[in-house]
Amino acid sequence: MHNQYNTITKMKTETLSTEPLPAGEEANVTRWNEYRGRYLDWCIVGFCIMGAAIVGITVLAIANITMTELADPAHLLKVAASSEVIGSILLTFGAGASAVILLILFGTPLAYVLARARPSRLKGAVESIVDIPLILPHTVAGLLVYLLFMRRGWLGAPLSEIGLAFEDALPGTIIAMLFVASPFYVNSMREGFEKVPVHLENVARTLGAGTFTAFWTVTLPLSLRHMYSGAILAWGRAIGEFAGVIMIAYYPFIISTLIYYSFTTDGIHTSRSIAFTVILVSFGVFYLLRRMTRYLGRYDDRV
């Protein structure tokens, strides 16, 4: 009995010690052969190395801030939970959303007209004007908005008379965000409208739809995906704005202003924690928004 048991354990140890080794070696050899046999495209390898430099900077930057912040979670939690930071994040996101809603309201008709207009000098001029905020330095854009909407500005003066003040007020933040984000929304929406063939509208019109009904029931539903991605793009641009906003509305603090302010007054420690909080929140929000696109306009039916 004892003997038998011994032999069994002996056999076991034998199998354990002898068999896996050759098998593992064999596997290693075949894998090596696989690699050796595969053709390496040096062009793609080169591109990957160059691309890694770009991705690497972002990854390193985020890893860097994450490591330092997670080293002192108590401080991070204190900053993140402060009403100042939470209020500022909500304000920034809210102002951005307001700007986007205004853009959807006024930019969509503009995008439709631009998409359907025949090429002409006027159309070219309007398209260039739409793109102006895109090519200007943000400080210049901010200054333009400030000069127009300040208390003595062309639009600011009459509007402040009816009680709508822009200087250091929420409307100022929104209008500056609207200005810098508008090209992103209008251009994306225009692209979407251009992709809806005119004869689809013609079908609707021959069936008895007026111009607006054809737009509302055919063209717009088929462009929802572009509207959505244009809105996200514009929103992202709006909440990231700093230079454009501070010119007209230093107060109330949007998140960029708050980080800059604490960077110059409290120093690096606090501003870094605020920045890290913003990174987490932004990632979360944009991840959710991107996921939602999956369910939107999936049954896209351009004929």
């Binding site: 008895g208 029931t217 039916d301 004929v303």
Partner: peptide, 21 residues
Amino acid sequence: FQRPIVFNASVYDNVAMGLRY
């Protein structure tokens, strides 16, 4: 029209378009 153009909805909804308008 020359090309058969239907909208990506049920046959019923396609045919009903004109009446809904």
